[in-house]
Amino acid sequence: MRLDVSSRASGPIFDGRAQRVANAYVNRLERQLADEGRSILLEELDRVLKTQTPFYATRIKVEDGNKITDSRVVYGPWLAGIGSRNYPVTKFKGYDHWYVTRDRLNARKQGIGERLLRRYTGRM
């Protein structure tokens, strides 16, 4: 007895379309999470800073599509409480705006990812 089996693979998984859509999804998700994190960070700055000056807030940007940065403002580490001039050198221990931003963004990321994924699954 002899059995010959042949198969043919076609479709988005086999021709690379699914991979391209998945990569586009990941890139878009990273950017959307960074934008959301930037918004949260600006809200947190409004909460913690008693006297608002626009300089620091205007330096908060999303770089490389997925990184939130304060553009290396010289007093940024001091505001965050990780600078060399924080406690015990001075009484100021810093604000928690970066930590709160991280926690709030972590709480929201699954919902953001699921909502965004709906736009991409039809193309896979």
Rank of each mutant, 00 (worst) to 15 (best):
V21L: 01
V21S: 01
A22C: 00
N23M: 10
N23H: 09
N23K: 14
N23P: 03
N23R: 12
A24R: 07
A24I: 09
A24C: 03
Y25V: 11
Y25A: 00
Y25L: 01
V26P: 00
V26D: 01
N27Y: 14
N27R: 15
N27I: 14
R28W: 09
L29T: 01
L29N: 07
E30Q: 13
E30V: 08
L33A: 04
D35R: 09
D35L: 15
E36P: 00
R38K: 10
R38P: 05
S39D: 10
S39E: 09
S39P: 03
S39T: 11
S39A: 13
L41P: 02
L41M: 15
L42M: 14
L42C: 05
L42E: 07
E44D: 06
E44G: 11
E44H: 02
E44Y: 04
L45T: 05
L45F: 00
D46V: 08
R47Y: 07
R47G: 05
R47I: 13
V48E: 11
V48M: 08
L49Y: 12
L49S: 02
T51S: 10
Q52W: 13
Q52P: 07
T53C: 00
T53I: 09
P54G: 15
Y56R: 13
Y56T: 14
A57V: 08
T58C: 06
K61R: 14
K61P: 07
V62N: 00
E63K: 06
E63C: 02
D64E: 09
D64S: 14
D64G: 10
G65N: 04
G65Q: 04
N66V: 02
K67D: 01
K67S: 01
I68V: 07
I68E: 10
T69D: 10
D70N: 09
S71R: 11
R72K: 08
R72S: 13
R72T: 13
R72V: 12
V73F: 14
V73N: 05
V73D: 09
Y75W: 07
Y75F: 14
G76N: 10
G76Y: 11
W78F: 15
W78C: 03
L79P: 03
A80K: 15
A80T: 08
G81T: 10
I82A: 01
I82H: 14
I82S: 13
R85Y: 12
N86Q: 07
Y87N: 08
V89Q: 05
V89H: 07
T90R: 01
K91N: 13
K91E: 11
K91D: 13
F92N: 06
F92L: 06
K93R: 14
G94T: 11
Y95T: 04
D96C: 08
H97R: 13
H97M: 12
H97S: 11
H97Q: 04
W98I: 15
W98M: 14
Y99C: 04
R102K: 14
R102C: 05
R102V: 06
D103A: 13
R104W: 06
L105A: 02
L105K: 03
L105F: 09
N106S: 10
A107N: 08
A107Q: 07
R108P: 06
R108I: 03
K109F: 04
K109N: 01
K109C: 03
K109P: 03
Q110T: 07
Q110D: 15
Q110K: 07
G111T: 03
G111H: 08
G113L: 12
G113N: 03
E114N: 09
E114V: 08
R115W: 08
R115G: 12
L116H: 02
L116I: 04
L117P: 04
R119I: 08
R119G: 05
T121D: 13
